[in-house]
Amino acid sequence: MDFEKKIAARCWATDGIWGDAVCPELARVGHCHNCAVYMRAGADFIERVRRGRKDGEASAPAGGSEPSEPIPAGDRTGKERSYLLFKCADFNFALPMEVVREIANSRPTHRIPHRKDKVLSGLSNINGELVITVDILRLMDLGQSKCDAGKMVVCAAGDDKFAFNADFVWGVARAGERELLPFEDDKPYAAFIYGFFLHNGQKFLLIDCELFFHALTRKYL
């Protein structure tokens, strides 16, 4: 498998240390960080961001996508916005970058006494600040998030900051208004989904921030 194919397949997340860790290269390099494929993916990403800034083109997400399939430019897709793409259980979500404050490694969460609601996971120390941690899967009635692996996404509406665990953060992508398609489902979580868009052949559900923060501040705290 050549570099491009490996990058497109995101081998570090499948066979690499963020996946099953079965890649034979691991024995030699120890960690994906030291692997030429991963380094190339990183270099490609930075180059795309640089090019995107320079030409006003859309930048591709972190971690590599097919360079031959750039997100169409703004005039064809409507007004574009940047979204953080992440995965929780079997769902891929997108969150507008305006509300994202930080991506941190997962860290211990201190439970809150006498609070039975499972949406509120507790408090986590993120860079010296105790941030309220929530379970977005429980919030949307989609099960329970894993809290010991992956990343923590810190987002904020005004001064109200929340963190939640995500199994994997794909990176940042830009998508235009016209790429957003209406999302319909009978299940309760549909209320939290503003719409969806396709990226690299995957479906990303865009979280309705207004309702997301409303529910967190009013219903569960």
């Binding site: 809150i112 006494p113 006498h114 109200d160 501040t217 705290l221």
Partner: peptide, 11 residues
């Protein structure tokens, strides 16, 4: 305590 948490019993 984080103001959003309001009064937390025992804390």
């Amino acid at each position: 305590l984080h103001p959003l948490l309001g009064k937390v019993q025992c804390v």
